[in-house]
C-alpha cells in the first residue's frame, strides 16, 4: 500500500490540499475582476472558487500516475484504491470546508470543496474521453466559460455560493461521472475470485 501511495503521489496530493485550504482561508474571499455576460456581479470571481482547480489537477495527476497496465492485472483492488483516493481527498476537503463555512471563517469554504469534487470529476472525465495528459483542460475551460457567462443556474456551479444545493448536486454528478471512468472496484473484486 505504501508503494501504491507513493506511485500515486499521495503525499503531494495531501500537501497541495492543505496549501489550497490554507489559501482559501487567507485570500479566498478576495475577488478577481472578470467581465461576464450576465453583468450581475462586476466584482468578479472569488479566489476560493478558482484555487480548487489546481488541487483537482494535482489529484488527477496522482490518479493517472502509477502503472495502469500492471494495476489492471493486480491481485489487489487497484480500482478501489483509486476511487478511494479521490473520495477520501474530496471528503477531507469537504469536512474541513464545512467546518470553515459553519464557523463563519470563510463563507466560500464549502463552495471550494464542492468545486474540488466537481473539477476532479470533470478532469477524470476529460482524461478518459479525450486524452490523459489533457485531462485538466476540460475543468479549466468550463470554469472560465461559466465565469464569463455568469448567471446562477445549476450549470454555473463553479461560481455559485456555498449554499446552492443544485450546484452541489451538479458537482457531485460530475464527480460521479469522473469516478465511473476509473477502473471499477467491483470488477477488480470479482476478478480476484
Amino acid at each position: 500500500m505504501r508503494l501504491w501511495l507513493r506511485a500515486h503521489r499521495a503525499a503531494r496530493v495531501s500537501v497541495v490540499l492543505v496549501v489550497t485550504m490554507a489559501l482559501v482561508v487567507v485570500v479566498g474571499d478576495r475577488t478577481v475582476p472578470l467581465p461576464n455576460l450576465a453583468g450581475a456581479d462586476p466584482a468578479g470571481v472569488p479566489i476560493a472558487l478558482v484555487l480548487p482547480l489546481l488541487a483537482a489537477a494535482v489529484l488527477t495527476h496522482g490518479v493517472q500516475a502509477g502503472l495502469p497496465d500492471v494495476e489492471a492485472t493486480a491481485v489487489r483492488p487497484a480500482g478501489a484504491y483509486l476511487t478511494g483516493l479521490v473520495i477520501a481527498t474530496c471528503a477531507v476537503s469537504a469536512s474541513a470546508a464545512l467546518g470553515l463555512t459553519v464557523a463563519g471563517v470563510e463563507s466560500h469554504g464549502f463552495a471550494a470543496a464542492r468545486n474540488l469534487a466537481g473539477f476532479t470529476g470533470l478532469a477524470l472525465l476529460g482524461g478518459a474521453v479525450w486524452r490523459h495528459d489533457a485531462a485538466s483542460v476540460l475543468p479549466s475551460a468550463y470554469l472560465f466559460a461559466v465565469a464569463l457567462a455568469g448567471g446562477d443556474s445549476w450549470w454555473a456551479w463553479p461560481v455559485d455560493p456555498s449554499s446552492a444545493v443544485s450546484s452541489l448536486a451538479a458537482a457531485l454528478t460530475a464527480l460521479a461521472a469522473g469516478l465511473a471512468t476509473l477502473p471499477s472496484p467491483v470488477r477488480s473484486r470479482l476478478s480476484r475470485r
Binding site: 482547480l53 489546481l54 489537477a57 494535482v58 488527477t60 495527476h61 493517472q64 478532469a123 482524461g127 490523459h132 495528459d133 489533457a134 485531462a135 485538466s136 483542460v137 475543468p139 479549466s140
Partner: peptide
Amino acid sequence: HPVIGVPL
C-alpha cells in the same frame, strides 16, 4: 506534467 502545468 501538462495535467498540472496547463491549469497552473
